[in-house]
Design a protein around this nucleic acid. Sequence first.
RNA 1: GGGCCCGUGGGUUAGUUUGGUCUAUACUUGUGGCUUUGGGAGCCAUAGACUCCGGUUCAAAUCCGGGCGGGCCCA
Length: 471
Amino acid sequence: MNRMRKEEEFNDWYNNIVEEAGLVDKRYPVKGMNVWLPYGWKAMRLIDALIRREMERTEHDEVCFPLLIPKTEFDKEAEHIAGFGAEVYWVTHAGNNELDVPLLLRPTSETAMYPMFSLWVRSHTDLPLKTFQLVNTFRYETKQTKAFIRMREIHFFEAHTCHVDFEDAERQIAEDLEIMKHFAKDLCIPYLLTKRPDWDKFAGAYYTVGLDTIMPTGRTLQLGSIHQYKTNFAVPYNITYENEGGEQVHAHQTTYGMSERLLGTVVGIHGDEKGIIFPPSIAPIQAVIVPILSKGNQEHVMEEARKLEEELKAEGIRVHLDDRDFRPGYKYNDWELRGVPLRLEIGMRDIEGGHVMAACRVQGKKILVKREGAGEQIKLIFQEQQEILWQKARSILEESIRTIEDYNQYEEGTIAKAGWCGEEECGHTIEDFTGAAILGTPVPEEETPEGTRCCVCGAHAPSWIYIAKTH
RNA sequence: GGGCCCGUGGGUUAGUUUGGUCUAUACUUGUGGCUUUGGGAGCCAUAGACUCCGGUUCAAAUCCGGGCGGGCCCA
């Protein structure tokens, strides 16, 4: 492909890069279902590993529920059905038989898990119950699909918890927010936390906290969400426990969901006209070694390159030796496209000088690294890269937020922050007029200064809202 | 839900308006070889396609109908 100006042609750039860098093969003949290629899957698995690390740290247990859910279970929570009914895939036949009870492919796993939670949760000593799973979910998306960002089969993370009461569930949500903090820093993805307006909360939730980031298009993209269910599901699914007083009480529940969108976001936010830029934290290959061969020294250089590879591997660096029969320039471009954070060139000059040439994808510069203790120096470069990517992305998000006083001041490509009286009608007016969506009110809650007015009706505005065009 | 468009080697594409000269164009990629290697090398050889089914016609990549697949716009 010709170099594409990422800023001007983001859609083309993105669609092209995910295939060209070998993340997915979009030719699978079902809309919204792509094939994960090894390189893309590796990146996803590394993101998953970060999630697992956080889940383990916070004592969640990993589970894995079946993909199929009986219609009878799905039907138990009315709002949930209303919200997801239109995008469910159904299994109505098995072999030659029509099924008495149709089965659906999970669009999310509440209705699969909660009948089981009802069996598992008996006593207050069983609580809190903190589980999560990493599975694929299915949603019959009718809009245009896009690799990682809008799919019909979604690689999905979902944590589901049960608690003794509302307060404990709230503590869980606080913990979820803290998890996100770590996690986003690792991915170098900044985000905005908002409590979704009532008309946009998750189907069945008491309230929903949305995690949104901003893409280079100036539109926001939801990275994940955290839901307080209160007892909305526990009642229909009969999740009760016996408290210390011997009474049967409904559990309070929360969920936390994220998806392969995280990968799409990393690609979209950090990439440049040369291709992807992976933060070292999730780069499938953190450092690639390109041997510079010339007549007469091939074996010697290759031997040194292999030695270097072993040394770095021993240091825990994900390193790859590119011994393909291409010229160096071709390899440079290839690995830049794939987003490898560090390229190590080793030729006779370097061997004789006791160093390697390190080309840093993020910093865009080349530096000489001493062979002695190279691993340590490389890790420092990685740290610096994480920091640069994080700061850069964060300032883009911060700079795109504009405070406005009247909703007709909303500018495309920005996230507007405005006063809001809290009336749903004013919310809809904003959405209809601007074509943008109301992300929600700030989390944690943020008081408005004296005299702040609703950007629609001019009444007293007790809270802020964020307004943005979304993906 | 409504409307529109598209389907040619692995990828991008010419050809479709006006059926025949298509034994299908070009670039890229793949494979084998020679040569080369500090920023996408060159040469030689070679492989590879008209989405499927039906219709019209002496003749279909081209026209018509349907299926499947893909894309776009509006609500």
